[in-house]
C-alpha cells in the first residue's frame, strides 16, 4: 500500500477528513461520542492506508486482515474511513444515527467492511482472540487487529482474553489501545487507573510498545513490524488526546457524550481549516 511518496501528508489528510466526517455526522444525527472518534483518527488512517490488507471491492475477501473495533461507540470514525475508501457510497454518511439510515451509532457488521459489531465494552478482544486462534489453526497468514479504549480495559472479559492470548502465544494478534485517558464519567486515572499500563501487559507476557497516537510516522513504524516479538501477542499503547483537533473538546470529559451544536460545528470546521 506504500504507493505515495507523500504518504505522511495523505495519511494526515485522511485523518483530518475522518474528523470532519465525524463532526458532521454526529452533528446531523445529534449523537455523542465524538471525542472518542477524534482521538483515533490517525490510528485509523494509518491502519487503513498502511497496515491492513483489505479490499473495498471484496469486503469479505477470505485473505483480509481482521480488524475488530472493540470501542464500538467510535464506529462513526470507521464508517468515515470505509466510506472514503469506497466500501460503500459516501451518501450513506447522511443517514448516520438517523431514521432509515444505514449506519447505526455503534459499529455494525451490516456495514460493508466492518468485521464485527460491538458497542458494549470488553467484547472485542475475546472475539479477536478466537479469530486469531482459528487463523493460526488453519495456517492462514492474515493478522487480527483489535482497537480498544481505556474503558475496554476496565472490563474483566478483556483481562480474561489477555491471559488467554499470552498463554497460547498468539503472535498473529495485535491490540491497539486508543489511550486517550478519559472515559464516560471522568479521567481514567481517577476512575480505574490503568498505570503502570505497559508494565501490566509485559507482566502478562505481551510484547508492548508505546507511541504518540497522533504521529502517523510513529504509528506506521510500530505497526510495520508485527509481531513485536515472536511468540507473543502485540500490545500498542497509543497516547492520544480525547477530542483531538477541536480545541475546546480536547482532553475533556464532556466530549464523550455531548453532541455538536450548529455553532460548534462551524467553529470546529474552521479549526480544521475546512472552508465549506
Amino acid at each position: 500500500m506504500k504507493k505515495s511518496e507523500n504518504w505522511v501528508e495523505d495519511c494526515n489528510r485522511l485523518a483530518r477528513t475522518v474528523r470532519v466526517h465525524c463532526l458532521r455526522m454526529t452533528h446531523r444525527g445529534k449523537s455523542g461520542h465524538v471525542g472518542s472518534m477524534l482521538s483515533m483518527a490517525e490510528i485509523l488512517s494509518v491502519l487503513y492506508t498502511r497496515v491492513l490488507r483489505v479490499d473495498p471491492k471484496r469486503p469479505k475477501w477470505a485473505g483480509r486482515d481482521r480488524f475488530v473495533l472493540s470501542k464500538g461507540h467510535g464506529g462513526c470514525a470507521v464508517y468515515a474511513v470505509l466510506g472514503e475508501l469506497g466500501f460503500f457510497p459516501k451518501r450513506w454518511f447522511n443517514g448516520y444515527y438517523r431514521d432509515n439510515g444505514k449506519l447505526m451509532g455503534h459499529i455494525s457488521h451490516h456495514v460493508p467492511g466492518v468485521e464485527f459489531s460491538t458497542g458494549s465494552l470488553g467484547h472485542g478482544l475475546p472475539v479477536a482472540v478466537g479469530m486469531a486462534l482459528a487463523a493460526r489453526h488453519a495456517g492462514k497468514t492474515h493478522r487480527v487487529i483489535c482497537l480498544m479504549s481505556d474503558g475496554d480495559c476496565d472490563e474483566g472479559s478483556t483481562w480474561e482474553a489477555i491471559l488467554f492470548a499470552a498463554q497460547h502465544k498468539l503472535d498473529n494478534l495485535t491490540v491497539i489501545v486508543d489511550y486517550n485517558k478519559v472515559q464516560a464519567l471522568g479521567y481514567s486515572k481517577d476512575v480505574l487507573d490503568l498505570e503502570p499500563f505497559a508494565r501490566k501487559l509485559e507482566d502478562c507476557h505481551w510484547a508492548v510498545k508505546e507511541v504518540d497516537g497522533h504521529d502517523v510516522v510513529a504509528l506506521d513504524e510500530a505497526l510495520s513490524k508485527l509481531p513485536f516479538e515472536q511468540g507473543k501477542p502485540s500490545w500498542l499503547i497509543c497516547h492520544t488526546v480525547k477530542g483531538k483537533g477541536v480545541s475546546w473538546m480536547e482532553n475533556t470529559v464532556s466530549c464523550h457524550y455531548g453532541s455538536v451544536t450548529d455553532e460548534e460545528l462551524a467553529r470546529a470546521l474552521r479549526e480544521l481549516e475546512v472552508t465549506q
Binding site: P126, V127, G130, M131, A132, L133, E160, F164
Partner: peptide
Amino acid sequence: CGVAEQNMTGVACGVAME
C-alpha cells in the same frame, strides 16, 4: 479458557466467525 466464561464465549464466537 480457564475459569473465564465470558472469554470462552467470545473466543468461541471468533472461532465460529472463521
